[in-house]
Simulated assay, not measured.
Amino acid sequence: MPVLDLSASSLDITRTICDIPSVSGDEVTLADAIHEAIADLPHLQIHRDGDTIVARTDLGRAQRVAIAGHIDTVPINANLPTRDIEIDGVPHLWGRGTVDMKAGVAVQLKLAAELADPRVDITWMWYDHEEVDADLNGLTRLARTRPDLFAADFAILGEPSNGAVEGGCNGNLRAIARTHGVRAHSARAWIGENAIHRAAPILTRLAEYRPREIEVEGLAYREGLNAVRIGGGVAGNVIPDLCEVEVNYRFAPSRSAAEAEQHVRDVLEGFDVEIVDLAAGARPGLDAPLAQEFLAAVGAEPRPKYGWTDVARFSAMGVPAVNYGPGDPHLAHHDEERVPVEQIASVEAGLRTWLAKR
């Protein structure tokens, strides 16, 4: 088993855990290393569910904060082991997972080991299967088996945010819009009805759609409704009888999941529409007292989170949550994934300043 030394710097811990491959479905080696590294820390109570590990303080504090990060990555593409590089004179750590989101996990692990007497009780969560279907997600499983572990007054997810604070997140909906026709030989096309041609109005409506920008609790969320995939056809000489257009809708957290579904059905009225995935967004929750204290401690101006993240899971349980982690989200899943070294140190300092006992 790889040895994880939590007395090392956050940068070195990042390097170590990135160099332990943990593509979704293959997290066990890293989960074992994390479990071994924290198992004997007397100030933490450990709970393990598969490859999800929860470590809690129980100091009787008046408030509790949940701090979470996923340990899996998307597939490796010749971008491990990690290496140190400079871009325009700025030191970076390059490699799969450095941005999404092992630098954030490394900071959390170091602080979990060192903050034995924090000002609030802390629930640390490191979970598996974030990069794949939601029903495999470690937090989904944990919410079903141990919902009590989510109890908190405020939550932080270490998703990459360039070291800024990103409040809440947009919701995410995927739908399939289908058109139907009648097969025929393409030499006698008039006998059939072309399902692909019938899909043209769907594409026209989506191309003409103008997304909204909606302010929610002082943050401006941008929506988007787009065709992301299209399929149809049987053979090169057959008029197709089915065409499917996959549509993705990113909606502001002011809309409920039901309202988002109805909006998509309204835009695509007259077509056969199936909703295949739907996850509500999360309101920023920045009016919570702990959130205000956190913003003041890290000196951050909050921004909206356009993508969906697991902050929505906490929000659904009544826990206000934000994203706060090192790394540029534009480089998540990128083959040139890399994190500025300074951002790792900055996020560690911000969290430490806020969580340390005063």
Rank of each mutant, 00 (worst) to 15 (best):
W124I: 08
A184I: 09
L157T: 08
G168P: 06
A152C: 10
P160H: 10
N172I: 07
L149E: 02
A113N: 06
N137T: 15
C169K: 02
A112R: 00
G167S: 11
I176N: 06
N162E: 10
A195W: 08
H185V: 12
H185L: 14
G138T: 14
S161H: 09
D153T: 04
R119D: 02
E159N: 11
I196Y: 02
A177Q: 07
F154Y: 09
P118Y: 03
G167M: 10
A189G: 00
I156Q: 00
A175L: 09
D133N: 14
I196V: 14
A116K: 13
R146K: 15
E130W: 07
G192I: 10
W126A: 11
A189H: 01
P160N: 13
P147A: 03
L142I: 12
C169H: 02
R119G: 02
R183A: 13
E131Y: 12
N172M: 06
L173S: 03
A134D: 12
F150D: 04
N137A: 15
D153Q: 03
D133V: 13
G181V: 11
A113V: 05
D148K: 07
G163Y: 03
D128L: 03
G138Y: 06
N137D: 15
R146D: 10
T140K: 01
A177Y: 12
A152L: 07
T179A: 05
R119Y: 02
R183W: 02
P147T: 04
R183D: 06
L136R: 15
T123S: 13
A200Q: 06
A200G: 03
L136Q: 13
N170E: 03
I191Q: 08
L139G: 06
W190F: 09
G171S: 04
L136V: 05
D153W: 02
L136S: 09
L157F: 12
D128F: 01
R144H: 12
R174A: 12
S186I: 14
R178G: 03
P160M: 11
G171V: 03
F154N: 00
A143W: 05
D133G: 14
D153R: 00
A151H: 14
S186L: 09
D128Y: 01
N170T: 12
A175M: 08
V165N: 01
W190C: 04
G158A: 07
G171R: 01
D121Q: 11
G158Q: 01
I196S: 00
R146Q: 14
G171P: 02
R188C: 04
N162P: 00
E130V: 11
